[in-house]
């Protein structure tokens, strides 16, 4: 396609250069001053060439390619993942196993995965450039797209439809892994959060988490935290990134984030709660235990 475009472009520029070279001679090269030849030239380049080029392009792109990359029917796929766009993060659900996570989607490689997308608020667009085209998440609608990774690896994705203040920081990661690794991951994610054997500071952190507004917005399964406004934190420590691929998931960053999310994603839906350094450190200790 780019080649065809290049040829058309260069051809036209060549004609302009020719015009410059022959600027003192009226009429066409070879044909001279000939109105019929002029019109024929216009018709040839303006109608005939485009019709041929475009028909070819149309057939290849829209009839062949489109059906090749369509989302697979639900019963043809090994796996369905439900993705929900939120201002400004991604919720991911695995309906078959009840797993719920955020911003990091794991899929088995060499498998066509059926991704079903919804929106919790405004329109977003789910897009992992290396794995397939984008699809909008639209309130009141359900859309689907296929994800297929030939090679294992980490693929970055990003929200592509303008969705407000932090549209720029609404990325995600897709981890394509060999099937066995994927199974292991899924089983581990299906477990409730760790409650037993928390260290002293972590146990304290858990208390602060539950006592404060955190629990009203986030779910940590197996605890009384059941909020649904923010991402599920049941296995937050197993994730590589936080805040929709904005920060790497390290204790220092976790601290920075929960202590003042507004300095990292200004306008974000998560408020800074001002609990003081001691409590925040304890919460970070707790969250770091949630593998």
């Amino acid at each position: 396609m780019l080649v065809a475009a290049g040829i058309v472009f260069l051809g036209a520029v060549a004609l302009l250069v020719l015009a410059r070279v022959r600027r003192d001679e009226p009429g066409l090269p070879l044909f001279g001053e000939n109105e019929r030849a002029n019109t024929a030239l216009v018709l040839a380049f303006g109608i005939a060439v485009p019709v041929v080029v475009l028909s070819a392009l149309f057939v290849i792109a829209n009839l062949v390619l489109l059906s090749d990359t369509d989302a697979p029917a639900a019963d043809e796929t090994a796996l369905t993942v439900e993705v929900v766009g939120h201002q400004w993060w991604w919720e991911a659900n695995y309906p078959e196993s009840g797993v719920r996570t955020a911003n990091e989607i794991h899929i088995p490689d060499r498998t066509s995965v059926n991704v079903v997308v919804h929106s919790a608020d405004v329109i977003h667009s789910f897009w992992v450039p290396e794995l397939n085209r984008k699809i909008d998440t639209i309130p009141g609608r359900t859309n689907r797209v296929e994800l297929y990774a030939e090679e294992p690896g980490v693929y970055r994705g990003q929200c592509a439809e303008f969705c407000g203040l932090q549209h720029a920081h609404m990325a995600l990661r897709v981890y394509a892994e060999p099937a066995a690794d994927f199974r292991r991951w899924l089983t581990q994610q299906a477990e409730p959060a760790r409650t037993a054997g928390l260290g002293g500071e972590a146990a304290l952190g858990k208390r602060y988490f539950m006592e404060n507004a955190c629990a009203g917005c986030h779910t940590i399964s197996g605890t009384q935290a059941e909020g649904t406004i923010g991402p599920d934190l049941t296995h937050i420590a197993s994730r590589d990134t936080i805040a929709a691929d904005t920060l790497e998931n390290t204790p220092a960053n976790l601290y920075r984030w929960i202590q003042n999310p507004q300095s990292i994603k200004p306008g974000d839906k998560m408020p800074g709660l001002g609990l003081g350094a001691r409590k925040f450190h304890a919460i970070v200790a707790y969250l770091s235990e949630l593998r």
Partner: peptide, 17 residues
């Protein structure tokens, strides 16, 4: 395309300044 090539042809066949 028609318009475009009409412009180009006109320039080509004229004596442009």
């Amino acid at each position: 395309g028609i318009q475009l090539f009409a412009w180009i042809t006109t320039i080509l066949t004229g004596t442009p300044r």
